[in-house]
Design a protein around this nucleic acid. Structure first.
Length: 483
DNA sequence: ATAGGGTTAG
């Protein structure tokens, strides 16, 4: 650490702070903050901004907000630092809230403010809010800003409307590689693999050179559509034809592609030939594929690697437990549960949000807190009855515990996703598309139930899970049951 | 000249 024994003014300290913020060295940044305090320097506006930006960027949003509140004069850079800090670290609601406060206080957002806010709106996932944002941009001077429009493409895709994403894309006159990549990723997210591939062809014709993200987008798209051969081709050609070195993410994607496609031994062999050390995501993809294809031994091996790299993530243990459950190895299931308990880990609580009249309402497993709870459960029962008539058979493999079958079934129909769907059905006019946002991945049962419900109720249901979108219509899902 | 800044596995 540099010593500040010479007489330093706050300007140099601000520069040092910014440098540490750039390289994301929070420890050194905090040391500088300490020196500032020790030297009894006034928190000049620039210093305050630099400090806020540092804490916000590194995720210490509470400290950042405290500093942010010290500033009396409205400064757009300070607001941007805080909004983007929130957005980058998963505090999307706070970012959105702050952006709206900014507008209500008549502090004029610049292009960076709106970009950061759009990133936050994308995370929130509400299509109505997304439309509000689009409208706001359209009325602003950023209507033709390439950066802003790229963020809008991503926002619309993440809020469930790939069509609106495409219309933003279409209206853009200048399209750089990020614009094209963003649209390709959007198609990938929605499982429209062929559209992503077609767009890539167009991109080549337009003479835009792809980058590593473009290929990642193509790999995601192939992955989500089960296009194993095509995905493999893209992976092979990126270095050969474009001179782009695949990164760890690309390798992880290919492992997922091969594994999910059922080529588990190929996936494992591919891992052993990687030019870099395989990380959590690579082993995690293999583990998840082993769960899908019920490959216990390879799955245990992958789990071992995942656990040693990321011992405190409950999700991995749940994967292994589900793998055991899928082949009926109940004693192993309990062993994993015990192991989790010993480590003090618990499964992330699942929740589903549904957008009704622009408002997001949350449901948890077995939730009875909603004022219309009684009606919701009545609707669920009615749905269950009609689904069974139509031939729906619950798959109890994904239940985590070794309960008797009846209990398992009960647990499954209480899943937050079903509660949200039931609430959506009783609180919107017929034909309204239901839009649901989940924090976890779709479970096999809810996925299957949603297909039935889309047909029985004649509704389109759009579900954003932790990784991708599912569009349910007429008893089918856009993912082709491949997720 | 310029802080804050658009796409990125599961």
């Amino acid at each position: 650490m540099r010593r500040f024994d010479v007489k330093l003014d706050w300007i140099s300290l601000v520069s040092v702070l910014r440098a540490y913020t750039d390289v994301e060295d929070l420890k050194q940044g905090k040391a500088v903050h300490g020196s500032v305090v020790k030297l009894g320097l006034d928190l000049e506006p620039d210093m305050l901004i630099a400090l806020t930006a540092m804490y916000a960027k590194s995720g210490e949003v509470t400290v950042a907000k405290f500093l942010f509140n010290q500033m009396e004069i409205p400064d757009v850079i300070l607001w941007n630092a805080m909004i983007s800090g929130y957005a980058k670290n998963g505090y999307a609601d706070e970012a959105v809230e702050l952006f709206r406060t900014m507008i209500s206080k008549n502090i004029k957002p610049d292009s960076v403010s709106v970009r950061s806010a759009i990133v936050a709106y994308a995370q929130v996932g509400s299509l109505e809010l997304a439309r509000w944002m689009d409208d706001f941009i359209n009325r602003s001077e950023y209507k033709n800003d390439v950066f802003v429009n790229t963020a809008l493409i991503d926002m619309y895709a993440k809020c469930g409307s790939v069509t609106s994403a495409r219309s933003i894309f279409n209206r853009m006159l200048k399209k750089d590689v990020v614009v094209w990549s963003s649209m390709i990723v959007s198609y990938g997210l929605h499982g429209q693999g062929q559209d992503a591939i077609d767009l890539f062809q167009e991109m080549k014709l337009a003479g835009v050179k792809p980058n590593d993200v473009t290929f990642l987008g193509l790999l995601i798209a192939c992955n989500h559509s089960g296009l194993v051969q095509e995905g493999w081709e893209y992976f092979s050609c990126m270095r050969r034809d474009y001179g782009i070195e695949p990164r760890h993410q690309h390798y992880a994607c290919v492992v997922d592609l091969l594994g999910r496609g059922g080529y588990l031994d190929k996936a494992y062999e591919f891992i052993t030939k990687m030019p870099m050390e395989p990380g959590i995501t690579v082993w995690g993809a293999l583990l998840s594929a082993c769960k899908i294809h019920r490959r216990v031994t390879l799955g245990e091996y992958a789990a071992g690697r995942v656990f040693s790299l990321d011992p405190l993530n409950a999700g991995h243990y749940v994967q292994l437990s589900n793998l055991y459950a899928s082949v009926g190895m109940w004693s192993h299931v309990s062993k994993v549960r015990v192991l989790m308990k010993e480590k003090g880990l618990s499964k992330d609580l699942g929740y589903s949000l549904i957008e009704i009249n622009g408002k997001l309402q949350a449901f948890r497993v077995g939730d009875k807190s909603h004022p219309r709870s009684k009606e919701i459960y009545q609707e669920l029962e009615e749905l269950e009855r009609r689904m069974k008539e139509a031939g729906f058979v619950p798959n109890t493999d994904s239940a985590l515990h070794d309960l008797n079958n009846e209990d398992k079934e009960e647990n499954l129909c209480n899943h937050s996703e079903r509660l949200a769907i039931a609430f959506g059905l009783i609180s919107t006019p017929p034909d309204t598309t239901l839009r649901i946002i989940k924090n976890l991945r779709a479970c096999v049962n809810c996925h299957s139930a949603a297909k039935f419900i889309s047909k029985l109720a004649g509704r389109e249901i759009v579900v954003r899970d932790a990784n991708r979108f599912h569009h349910f219509k007429d008893g089918l899902c856009s993912c082709g049951d491949y997720w």
